[in-house]
Write a protein that binds this DNA or RNA. Sequence first.
DNA 1: TCTTGACTTGGAGCTAACTCCATATAGTAC
DNA 2: GTACTATATGGAGTTAGCTCCAAGTCAAGA
Lengths: 130, 130
Amino acid sequence: MTIKDVCEKFGITADTLRYYEKVGAIPKVGRSQGGIREYDDEALSWVRNAVCLRKAGVSVEAIAEYVRLFNMGDETIEARLELLSNERESLGKQLEELTNAVELLDYKISRYREAVETGVLTWDRDPLGN
Amino acid sequence: MTIKDVCEKFGITADTLRYYEKVGAIPKVGRSQGGIREYDDEALSWVRNAVCLRKAGVSVEAIAEYVRLFNMGDETIEARLELLSNERESLGKQLEELTNAVELLDYKISRYREAVETGVLTWDRDPLGN
DNA sequence: TCTTGACTTGGAGCTAACTCCATATAGTAC
DNA sequence: GTACTATATGGAGTTAGCTCCAAGTCAAGA
């Protein structure tokens, strides 16, 4: 698979993919004779991993650290478990923040929908709505 | 309430709070004789709004746009509803990405926990685990 | 073979959201 | 009033994560 195919598959740019490789968020990708990247199933699996975690806000640095540990072999299994656990924990917190904000927006939206109908914007929770 | 109190209350720095005011993510805060910020309940409510949305990843620009519309009065109610709905939608997508990543991490973590016990790292879903 | 378009690299440039700094003024305890 | 700490302002600096660019190489079709 060429870099273009991979980009389309995951909805990211070639620059981003090369950047991920450069900083180690995915392992070095194999090349053709002429030096052109050729993505096999394993490479794709790493791309999927990086893209999924990035979309959730995991730092490129953390992803790269995981790849680095992975390439060091079995002695780093515990270190990888700890890294993953830490990231999992911070995503859990992020999930909470996100849920709070969704709740806030849903509340405001309900008030605004009413306001559009009745012409009056009111806040029943907090008298200081905004 | 002084800027320091507000910072402590919300766990952000005074610089951030002044920055939010400068770019309009919160309305202008009232000042004392000498020009020092004095946060009343309404100001606090705006700060709460900004902090909550920022923690979920809503851009400062979008928050500022909401404040701007709010200050323009009742003619902007529909515009505000649309803005809030758009932001709500993108948080919904973000929630999904986050959930996917949490699921991925939980799966990996379960594999790693097993590996720490058994000494063997295996992937039952995808034979190309990483 | 020639042309055209995709791909390569190293490195510079960009944006959002802070974060820090210098200088000056305000408030507070004594 | 003096000393000391907090706050104000404008503007420069920082960081992450891309994004773009130039100059050159590679590959597929006419």
